[in-house]
Computed example of a mutant assay.
Amino acid sequence: MKRKFNQYTFRSWVRTFKDACRQLIIPFTIFQAIRTVLFPSTIDVLLLTIFIALALAYHYEII
């Protein structure tokens, strides 16, 4: 049985870290997209995909 977590039961530092990641994921994604366009490599594309997935997860509040 999957246990649901209440975001308000997290410790304050976990919420602070989560909020900091939420604020920084979009600038990192934009920077990585520019870098991928200029210097494409497998690692850059993979990292851009991970950043986009994280940004969407934060946007739709999956994380």
Rank of each mutant, 00 (worst) to 15 (best):
M1D: 11
M1A: 15
M1Y: 12
M1W: 05
K2Y: 10
K2T: 03
K2G: 09
R3C: 12
R3Y: 15
K4H: 12
K4S: 10
F5V: 05
N6G: 01
N6L: 10
Q7N: 07
Q7I: 02
Q7W: 05
T9V: 01
T9E: 09
T9F: 05
F10Y: 14
F10C: 08
R11Q: 13
R11K: 14
S12L: 12
S12Q: 14
S12V: 09
W13K: 15
W13N: 15
W13L: 06
V14L: 14
V14I: 13
V14P: 04
V14G: 02
V14K: 15
T16D: 15
T16K: 13
T16E: 14
T16P: 01
F17E: 09
F17H: 09
K18P: 00
K18H: 14
D19R: 06
D19A: 05
A20F: 01
C21E: 01
C21R: 02
C21N: 04
R22H: 05
R22Q: 10
Q23L: 06
Q23P: 01
Q23F: 02
Q23S: 01
L24Q: 02
L24H: 08
L24A: 06
I25F: 08
I26T: 13
P27F: 07
F28I: 00
F28S: 04
T29R: 15
T29V: 00
T29E: 13
I30F: 10
I30N: 13
I30A: 15
I30W: 13
F31N: 05
F31C: 08
F31D: 01
F31T: 02
F31W: 10
Q32W: 04
I34Y: 13
I34H: 11
I34C: 15
R35L: 11
R35V: 00
T36H: 09
V37I: 08
L38Q: 03
P40N: 05
P40Q: 03
S41F: 06
S41N: 10
T42W: 09
T42Q: 07
T42M: 05
T42L: 04
T42C: 05
I43D: 13
I43T: 09
I43S: 11
I43N: 11
I43C: 03
D44K: 02
V45H: 05
V45L: 06
V45Y: 03
V45R: 04
L47I: 05
L47W: 11
L47H: 10
L48D: 00
L48C: 06
L48F: 10
L48K: 00
T49N: 04
T49A: 14
T49C: 07
T49F: 06
T49K: 05
I50R: 11
F51N: 14
F51P: 00
I52R: 11
A53M: 07
L54R: 04
L54S: 05
L54D: 01
A55N: 09
A55C: 08
A55Q: 06
A55R: 08
A57W: 00
A57H: 01
Y58T: 10
H59Q: 06
H59P: 00
E61R: 11
E61Q: 04
I62L: 09
I62S: 05
I63P: 00
